[in-house]
Design a protein around this nucleic acid. Sequence first.
RNA 1: GACUCAGUAGCUCAGCUGGUAGAGCAACGCCCUUUUAAGGCGUGGGUCCAGGGUUCGAAUCCCUGCUGAGUCACCA
Length: 573
Amino acid sequence: MSTLELSEQEIIRRKSLEELNKLGINAYPAAEFKTTHLSTEIKQEFDPAKDNLKEVVIAGRIMSRRIMGKASFAELKDAEGRIQIYLNRDDMCPGEDKTLYNTVFKKLLDIGDIIGVKGFIFQTQMGETTLHVQEMTILSKSLKPLPIVKEKDGKVYDAFSDPELRYRQRYVDLIVNEGVKDVFIKRTKLMNSMRQFFNERGYLEVETPILQSIPGGAAARPFITHHNALDIPLYLRIANELYLKRLIVGGFDGVYEFAKDFRNEGMDRTHNPEFTVMEIYVAYKDYKWMMDFTEEMVEKIALDLHGKTDLQVGDKTIDFKRPFKRISILDAIKEHTGIDVSGMNEEQLRAVCGELEIEIDDSMGKGKLIDEIFGEKCEGNYIQPTFITDYPVEMSPLAKRHRDNPELTERFELMVNGKEICNAYSELNHPIDQKERFEEQMRLSEKGDDEAMFIDHDFVRALEYGMPPTSGMGIGIDRLTMLMTNSDSIQDVLFFPQMRPEKRIVPDSDEKFTELGIAPEWVEVIRKIGFSKVDALKETKPSKLFQDLCGYNKKNKLGLKNPSQDDVAAWLA
RNA sequence: GACUCAGUAGCUCAGCUGGUAGAGCAACGCCCUUUUAAGGCGUGGGUCCAGGGUUCGAAUCCCUGCUGAGUCACCA
């Protein structure tokens, strides 16, 4: 590794690592390091009046250092939080040899290094619970400097805030930015809360195929891949709905799955190409039952995560206390536009869209038009949790027709903060109706609606054997997590949101450069001025390269003997 | 896919109508035994995202590209 490519601080840290080696200290020891406490446990258990906690071992990452001659303070961060440690030269090094403190701690350790310490707990004059170090072990040396984030009275200074760096190097984000970890802990708690809710009721967590030969259950552009042995195309699933319903046909009364789904569509604040959905199907229930069930579940999640139901989300307070408001989509449209669209035909709906200045196109049928009106004029108004019910049949090919109106379906979506987070039906179990609805989707697809669905004949066959009346519900885990953690971007609730890959140029070896006749001392300079590849170098003009090399030599006072212009021309020949 | 904004030291950011790059933190050296955004004195550190153009001269102006963010389009 060429040192010219490393920053000054990285070079210094590599030298410190060598120095540790010379002192016989392995900066990456193999042995288990047994700790007795976590930082939070110490803060809870320590009682200055009792003067307890005399033998404590903790491990963590050095986050700050305040060196004051023969004594120092540092902050260690472990999995649970931060705790201050106090290092005193003569306590750490009782004998003549003060190397461990003077050299190892003060000179060779850095912010970011992981150490283990043993000592006793005390309280400083400032009232800070602190571990007084008697023994110190290096557990891992950090070779790259961490961003330094400081904080006083809740105000954060020099936050590590570049979103690109935060998402690409999430590990750094997690180390230095307080609160990031908590979002992800809440995400897991949310899923555990749901699991518990389902398991208590006897529903079975299952796994269904991610690689599917027909990407069914939703309408979206899939990612496509290829299976070599079978020599067939396969798709990453866009939904798991049809597989879960096959299991209901097979005789399970309640099945659920936390599913990673994949859609090959645009990315924005609420869309990532891979995302997580929880879907649950329960036999002998209808969508009204499912509304009660969903309500109870969402309320429980809020309580499990926050101990209360009213949460601050952005500048709004959202209350997840049941019951949630329920309104049919047609009533919602009436409420927000004053227009009653029930019973209207396609032509009349088009006229309404014109009146409301909603953009539409020829491929849209009745259902889609109603959906557009709702999306444009109503959706954003539902801040508090609201069930929107009874969607038109055209936009719900997997939902059962409404018991009172065959134009509508028994379907609901849960709207919170103006966004859909959940979608549920009384599932269509009439095999002939289902087949016809799929065929209708095909016609829409031929009409140009690229959201229409593929037909899954095996699924229809399963329905032909008979599926009990069933209600199903799907809920977007990422979006629910956003609500429950007050995050305004999906990227903040995914550890590793999708990014364009970094370009990594592998530099050519020294030999490839010296083979051209270039003197070894100039190779690093050539790299530094931007040529890591011999091929790129050969493209450049000798005169420009000559000037750049001499200029760099002079500017950086390298003191190298400049090559002649002829030398440079010979290298590139 | 369209538009807008951004990219300067390890991090956060200044840098005016073009004139050889600045601060704080971090780093390095020295001082300091209960500090906490520790403090004091001193020092080093930059292909100013990349490539072209205009100019005597470009971090700065123009064009192209790369990366990211935002808005829209798309999105059961």
